[in-house]
Amino acid sequence: MLDALKVITIVVVGVMVGVEFSVAFVINPILNALPGDNGLRGRTHGARMLGAAMPFWYIGSLLLAAVWAVAGWHHHGTGLVVVAASLLILSVIMSVLLLVPINNRVKTWTTEHLPEDWKAQTNRWDRFHYVRIAVIIAAFALLAAALA
Rank of each mutant, 00 (worst) to 15 (best):
L5Y: 10
T108E: 15
G51T: 10
T9Y: 00
A66G: 14
A65M: 00
V81P: 04
G72A: 11
T122M: 03
L5D: 07
L142M: 07
N123C: 08
Y58M: 14
T110P: 03
L63K: 15
N103F: 01
V11D: 12
L147I: 13
L98K: 14
A144P: 09
D117C: 03
V13A: 01
D3C: 13
N32M: 15
V26P: 10
H113F: 15
H113N: 12
A71P: 04
G42N: 05
V135D: 07
I8R: 03
R105L: 04
W57A: 05
I102E: 07
N104K: 05
G18K: 05
A24K: 07
I30Y: 08
M1C: 15
L64T: 05
A85T: 07
I27T: 10
G14S: 07
N104D: 02
F21P: 08
W118R: 09
A47H: 01
V92D: 00
D37H: 00
V26H: 13
F25N: 01
M1F: 12
F56W: 13
W109F: 15
G51I: 06
G42T: 09
G77R: 12
A52K: 03
L142T: 05
T78C: 08
V81M: 13
T108P: 01
V100S: 04
L143Q: 07
T122R: 02
N123T: 11
H75G: 07
L50A: 10
W57I: 02
H45S: 15
K107Q: 05
T108K: 08
I93S: 05
V81C: 10
A4H: 14
L88K: 00
E116P: 13
